[in-house]
Design a protein around this nucleic acid. Sequence first.
DNA 1: CGTTATCTTGACGTACATCAAATGTCGTGG
DNA 2: CCACGACATTTGATGTACGTCAAGATAACG
Lengths: 246, 246
Amino acid sequence: MATMSPHPAVMVARQRGIETCSSCGARASSVCSAIEDPDLSRLAEVAVHKEMVTGQTLCEEGDTAEHFYNITSGTVKLFKTLPDGRRQITGFASAGHFLGLAVSSTYAFTAEALEPVRLCRFSRPKLRVLLDDFPALEKRLLETAVNELVAAQEQMLLLGRKTARERVASFLLALLQQSGSCGKLSASIHLPMSRHDIADYVGLTIETVSRTLTRLKADKIIDMETPSQIGVLRRGELERIAEARD
Amino acid sequence: MATMSPHPAVMVARQRGIETCSSCGARASSVCSAIEDPDLSRLAEVAVHKEMVTGQTLCEEGDTAEHFYNITSGTVKLFKTLPDGRRQITGFASAGHFLGLAVSSTYAFTAEALEPVRLCRFSRPKLRVLLDDFPALEKRLLETAVNELVAAQEQMLLLGRKTARERVASFLLALLQQSGSCGKLSASIHLPMSRHDIADYVGLTIETVSRTLTRLKADKIIDMETPSQIGVLRRGELERIAEARD
DNA sequence: CGTTATCTTGACGTACATCAAATGTCGTGG
DNA sequence: CCACGACATTTGATGTACGTCAAGATAACG
């Protein structure tokens, strides 16, 4: 899980703003790692690099699915909306994650940048050719899809059966895990999303999320310097709550 | 979607209780359709046919994932459980569905037969070899996994943001759709699962599911001859409720 | 340093859960 | 075929966790 400092040439390329697949910081953690260095030019040929500002949408629910995206930096939120405005965020995708793998011809969700985002865009027909030529890429994609499926099932358990306190604890732990600092007893998390986004992700209201966080703080389980900076003081306790162990 | 009557030789094989891949009734709708007839023997070599009685478990959450299953008849429920017994059913798998595609070494859920089930079991190492030899199979698997991901996102919207009435309506429509009788204005559904299972699937209690169904019946939107036999009288209305259109 | 959006806190309402009992369903054996 | 018991489902009375509404407090930003 350790992020190694990249090769000097890569550093130079990044400083110059030249972003190629070989210098891509997200490559190791993304599906692109399935393609070996010699074949990387094939990948670079069809990849279009894009930058998006906060609030910009990459795709919208119901639109015809023309592209496949691979996030290289920043975070996007994926969500579905009901006609009356109720929203369910189905996930947050950060560096290394891909999205847009619809089988149907339309996207099943909207994707919106939470912070400035850099990404690689592939047209779906071109991706298809690539997948035919590199079975390893397809394998990696399947692996990732299955991982997401497992995460989705965990989220269903959260949404269907957990209490507000259990939901928030689970959410914080999931963030902690993907922010890499695993194992440590105490750690700090930066929340790139608003209370509204958290609420729409764990199926609560902003008020309940806020109240739950302040209670966790009062219980000395977490710390909150600013609303978006959370320190986990007693990780074990948080895990006990999230898994409903008593 | 139309289920064609099978080849006479296949009928004979089934009557004799001989179940081979070529005579498998679920083949067309399962991932196995990715393998052409000539190569089917390779598939049959590694597939082990099994039958399970109601209530029997195919795998248990946390167990080491040794097998991959393909359901050929009957229905299984997949669920996760919290230490205090709260349960979330993450899906129902019937003929043509597969399960056990864990990337991790352990199963993420328990799978239990809802009714007598017939299935094909593959050992994961052998499946891996098969996947290496038949990229089309891997493609089909990815396609199915993505479909399930889309369904999972829809279910997250249901669990996180829909009312009891909307959840039950959505559930009935999903059953109606997969039971094949799409398009028709009125249709009949047989529920192979108990109220308890329905409740654990849509994140409610049995009482609320029951009350909601009786209210839908009182509103002349559905009909209920027995608790497990439901007629959909006004499908459009049910869809309006499920999608929260007003 | 004001202005505005976001977050927190409080008072109150409600949809669904819980508890309890009646009714219905279905398999079993007399 | 019918009576019985066990279990599933329905129905009713009541409780509660979380939602809603309404101010404040804080933080973010020009």
